[in-house]
Design a binder for these strands. Structure first.
Lengths: 197, 197
DNA sequence: TTTTTGTATGACCACCCAGTCACATCCTGT
DNA sequence: ACAGGATGTGACTGGGTGGTCATACAAAAA
């Protein structure tokens, strides 16, 4: 967490620090991001940064938090939706996409986070949280006869996690809603031909 | 490509250079890998490295090439297999898994390559190549009535690419053949219940 | 024997990094 | 007017990086 000094700051100055930091961590993963570049880009002294934050990691985790806070404001809408698991998933990725469009830099910060090599414990923790949420969701869908009960739930989560991650990456290249729907259709219907009753 | 000097080298010395380089590029992505550490670990002088290779990138690309050459020796078997697309895919990932088990360092080198930030053109090129191969394969499967013709081929490739990448990452955590099959089943049958005739 | 050629070496260069600290500045309460 | 706390500063430290180069050695060619 930032030190108190940071919150006492002149808002304009504080925003300049945030903007420069977000930009740096959007362009570079944690290990390659440079504090020197950040202070150059917002025109404050190196020493000042250490009045506001404990160290580079403290700043980084704060910025990542900001990004995810904003992202939750978008994707959260999906979960309050009435509808089956397929509707919710489509809305989830659609909201992710809108977030990426509205806050491209925050989106990149959030994405870079998963590639980091120093923060493996935090990343693993996040994965486990998501897996738990997802499996509860999946169980309901199976119970209500919407989802295929023959599939291994762990494997299902694995597939959705992998595809979701790349889908979100793809947003930087201007994916549209149509593509999201087509990708989800692949996951929904499977590659093998269906000869339903 | 390495300079001639490298190939004229005493094989033992050459192997020491290769071993140390593979280890470094397995542990660290290109940008964070350190030439100084490599020369320390194989006990040769920094200057010698520049008798063998143009620069860090030259060395790196050579090591990546070695890794992929070895990997092709494994996954290549899948394509010479008789059987439908599902059989081939399962064999493909199974061979990837065996490769990762037999050559864990080379496997990591190959995997790190996709995360690199300086080599985006090469990476995109590789993706396009794989997409072309895959779509030819997919068309055959659709034509012979094995694969669902209603799906968008681009989306299908996208899903398989994403899942394949993560599946291969997962090998480091000791995945077994069973999990590969379960993941492929998710892709094959889809999440929605099937009520086949 | 002398010369040329190929190779090995590590001190050295310029540059970048995160983080520190002695000092300057400003503001507020007395 | 003064004191004292909060804030701003940038030169500096110690350590890392990729890459260079004069020098040394060896062996083969003259």
């Amino acid at each position: 967490m930032p030190k108190l000094t940071f919150f006492n700051l002149d808002p304009e100055r504080r925003q300049a620090v945030l903007d420069a930091s977000v930009e740096e961590f959007a362009k570079h993963p944690y290990e390659q991001a440079s504090l020197s570049r950040i202070v150059d880009n917002c025109g404050i002294a190196k020493g000042s940064m250490y009045q506001y934050f404990e160290d580079k990691l403290d700043l980084y985790l704060y910025i990542v938090d900001l990004a995810y806070e904003q992202k939750r404001a978008y994707v959260g809408k999906a979960f309050s939706l009435e509808g089956d698991i397929f509707t919710v998933l489509e809305e989830y990725y659609w909201q992710s996409h809108l977030f990426a469009k509205d806050f491209p830099l925050l989106h990149q910060v959030a994405n870079n986070f998963w590639d980091s090599r120093v923060l493996l414990p935090q990343i693993e923790e996040g994965r486990i949280d998501r897996a738990r949420d997802f499996s509860k969701f999946l169980e309901e869908a199976i119970a209500s006869g919407k989802a295929n009960p023959d599939l291994d739930p762990q494997a299902v989560f694995f597939v959705y996690h992998a595809v979701g991650k790349d889908l979100v990456d793809e947003f930087e290249r201007g994916t549209n809603g149509e593509f999201i729907r087509e990708v989800l259709d692949v996951l929904r219907y499977g590659l093998q031909v269906r000869r339903e009753v």
